[in-house]
Design a protein around this nucleic acid. Structure first.
Lengths: 218, 218, 218, 218
DNA sequence: GATGAATGAGGCTTCATTCAT
DNA sequence: TATGAATGAAGCCTCATTCAT
């Protein structure tokens, strides 16, 4: 699951405490720099400087910009998951589940918006990172599809909805709206957004939306 | 409206017939090359070679790669609009309008998928192209918002739907789904996709979806 | 036969006169620099500077240091051959032939001694150039072997000499002696060297050496 | 005589037993690595890794790659001398002496061929190592010259042979032939090679070669 | 207009050597 | 002594852009 592992080529020996510290400094500096300048405009030079280490030190820990980026993305993924999971539990009814997921997604997105923008960028030209993102998307969509199908079997979702298409479409709706608001910076109100996305998601499937204000009890 | 104009710095004098031909060759070659190798991996060298003109000739017509890209995007936009507009007219009822728009969007997307992928890429790091895309998105969203508001005023759309959020969210749904299918290559059936997107779009707003099979009469 | 051709990757279009001039300047500068500093200590930077062209210009004509070196070696080979061939003809008797060949070899070596040193160096670590050198050696040795075998068949060369071993050994003698004198700089007199090498070469095979002074009539 | 001493800059204090062991490990690992990858492609990193000591430990014992190489060459020289000296003694006649020396040289060469190749390489660009090699050559050549002069004084060697030139030339013959066979890998039979080199060496000087088969009695 | 050579800044990577622990 | 992290100089190569013909 971590992105970095598969192709990590640099040092893998047990690092000393000092090494661990330097490595962490680099990862942190890399994230900061990526967020500030974007992936393409960030050079190894920039990262080293931000971490206040010598140019060559970078290569003690990472073989390339792509490699440290993968590491940053690993951290990002963990954080996204942590935030989404921290969302207070919901009732067992579909509307509650949808509300919670939507809320969790937007909050995680907001907390990491700058990196989400970069990740979007990198996914468009790095086959490897693109694949990672695609896989993550598929996993999320498949979970939604299964849930929708289950609900449909129980007669809660309209019969003419195709769970596979609905999962892709509604997942895209939430994901892309978050991008539009948090990355493109279109003005919006987060609570209202959560409420409306939940409403549209539910109604589209033929579900009764959660009672107003319920979506965002926090 | 054309993207290229505002900042075009290269030759703007009335071109000779030969000049026009060379320029057109370059734009065509550029698009081909961008589609084949992506924006980043395309060099001016590549474009000139593909157009079978000398390296320096490129600069007779364009000041940079970004500039010729803007020109390509202008062509792309025109083509998208043309395809969408060519979609056979629809009844005056909301569902028909939504069906027609969705159908048109997907067909135009399909016909230009490779460039859409590149455009998505470039928008993430070129402020200028990003702005162009953002403006186009805003225009589309604003049209949808107005329509939804109108329908809502006529009591056709649920009262708890906020037209602005719904326009952004449902527009994102259609746009991102097209990306997932046509660019990421997730398997799908186009007619089914049009039907389902239309269904979800309508239902989400509380509209009666068009009769089955109606969405794709062609 | 030219070393450069097989793997030349850089520009191969019909060069303009200007291009031809620049390319020639580079090759000449490269040879000068290699001779002065050796292959390893010569950087592309050095060559460009010596040719008084910009760094990047080098890459307009050559893909790497190895490639321009191959070009220099081609020139060298041609020159060696030319000098050896210019040696005045000899009588048909073995001793005359041996004298002429030895004389030609030493004179060609002397005229190109600095590059011979570099070539020796490069052959030890470049598989490609090493192979070129090996092939050249084999060709020379095979010619000698054939001549010795012929002379032996006519009873001119001792029966206990093995032509193959003798060709390798005596060829090595001449070649390495030239290296010792011209490259390592051991003191010697060229005419005396030619005379003695010829004498040893002939006597070793059991041939009557050429009359004294005859070896170097020039 | 040892090559390493003159310029050794690293620790020269009496080493502890552990220190001696580590140092020896490094020299051994260095030789192995040089043979495997050549001098140029061997990094200090490689040597340390092969010796299973830390990177920095190398510098506890050696100041540079060249320095440890000199140490390896010292070992090599000792080994060459040992093998040559181990050659069974010969009769007092010139032919026997020549046969024995030739035999010893080739056997020592064969036993150390990979390092001989590396040494040849390094001598072409390291002034220091080059000088070492040159000195060794001069010593060998001087011994030969003296012997040939002696034999000539006793009327055993042709009067028209110049001992100095003959020593250089015939020494080059044996040395370079060994290189051609053992390093370049040209096919040959070692016993036959010894026999033929001895034959050519003797005959060239006007000496009666040793009786056939005598050269290689072992 | 067209051509293609010339330029040089910018980014990447390696690795010998130094240094703190 | 041993360790291994830190340093930064040096070389490589690409490519957008300019310029002479």
């Amino acid at each position: 699951m971590p992105v970095a592992s598969p192709t990590t080529t640099a040092v893998m020996r047990p690092l000393t405490a000092r090494g661990l510290r330097t490595r962490a400094k680099l990862v942190k500096a890399a994230r900061r720099t990526f967020e500030r300048r974007g992936y393409l405009d960030t050079s190894i030079q920039d990262i080293s400087a931000a971490a206040r280490v010598a140019y060559g030190t970078f290569y003690t820990y990472f073989a390339s910009k792509e490699e440290i980026f993968a590491e940053v993305v690993d951290d990002l993924s963990a954080d996204l998951r942590a935030i989404a999971d921290a969302e207070p539990g919901a009732g067992p009814d579909p509307a509650s589940r949808i509300a919670r997921t939507t809320r969790g997604y937007l909050r995680a997105y907001r907390a990491n918006a700058p990196m989400m923008a970069i990740l979007e960028q990198v996914a468009t030209f790095s086959p490897r990172l693109g694949e990672v993102r695609r896989a993550a998307r598929r996993t999320r969509v498949e979970a939604s599809r299964a849930a929708i199908a289950r609900w449909q079997a129980r007669g809660l979702v309209r019969a003419d909805v195709d769970p596979a298409y609905a999962a892709t479409a509604l997942g895209s709706m939430v994901d892309r709206s978050a991008y539009v608001w948090f990355v493109l910076g279109e003005p919006f109100d987060e609570e209202r957004a959560i409420e409306q996305l939940t409403l549209l998601y539910c109604t589209a499937l033929g579900l009764e939306p959660p009672p107003k204000g319920d979506a965002c009890r926090r």
